[in-house]
């Protein structure tokens, strides 16, 4: 499976993502700097976590207007798999590739801990290796992860089964509506999620729960 990781000024999980993809898919991803105009021909493009542009204006807002985003939007519309993690999720919503917005955590504090996630839709290319209803552990590290969309958008997202991951009952770390931790676009080829599956993929991380997401992508490619 061929993949690429987009790097912005202030990205800081790009190497973790690179390592996870390299180790699990068996092929080295390409780093793509945000000022490039074209992405390579790959099966998966990842928008990694971090603090692109220091979260100026709104988290992800400036990165979402970077030169490379034009081609990312085109690739997403042509069906290429796109994964946005944490700041990447914020960037994908700001770019209009995913509905809704990520707001300041309801508790106002930066949350850095492990949460429990429930896979509520395993019929996507990002989640096929999970059991439906499977509860798994995943690290989160964010200040703006409070998923919000208007009632009509939430209804559409729910009706269309676009919610892939929810924070397990009672573990919502940020006030997200409907405990939403990860959603896809309507077509199902773009996933945004706040938790970091790339940080729980080898024994030294303390667990392997995040591997299933990458193995799902590998199966789909």
């Amino acid at each position: 499976m061929k993949s690429a990781v987009i790097v912005f000024p202030g990205s800081n999980r790009d190497r973790d993502m690179f390592h996870a993809l390299d180790m699990i898919t068996g092929s080295r991803p390409q780093h793509v700097w945000h000022t490039e105009s074209t992405l390579p021909d790959v099966d998966l493009v990842v928008v990694p976590g971090g603090f692109s542009y220091g979260d100026y204006l709104r988290s992800g807002a400036i990165a979402a207007r970077s030169p490379i985003l034009k081609d990312l939007v085109a690739k997403a519309h042509s069906g290429v798999a796109v994964l946005g993690v944490c700041n990447g999720f914020q960037i994908l919503t700001e770019a209009g590739l995913l509905p809704g917005a990520l707001m300041r955590n309801a508790g106002l504090t930066f949350v850095c801990k492990d949460v429990m996630m429930e896979t509520v839709n395993n019929a996507t290319r990002f989640s096929s290796q999970f059991q439906k209803g499977q509860v798994w552990r995943c690290p989160v590290a964010h200040h703006d992860g409070n998923y919000f969309a208007d009632a009509e958008t939430i209804r559409k997202v729910e009706d269309n089964n676009q919610v892939v991951f929810r924070y397990a009952e009672g573990t919502n770390p940020n006030g997200s509506l409907n405990n939403i931790a990860g959603i896809t676009n309507a077509a199902g080829n773009v996933l945004g999620m706040m938790p970091h599956p790339e940080n729980l993929v080898e024994p030294l991380h303390g667990g392997l729960d995040g591997r299933l997401l990458f193995e799902s992508l590998l199966t789909a490619a």
């Binding site: 207007r65 700001e94 707001m103 919000f148």
Partner: peptide, 9 residues
């Protein structure tokens, strides 16, 4: 519309 505001919120 394009940058200063996120009209979702």
């Amino acid at each position: 519309e394009k940058l200063l505001a996120n009209t979702v919120i």
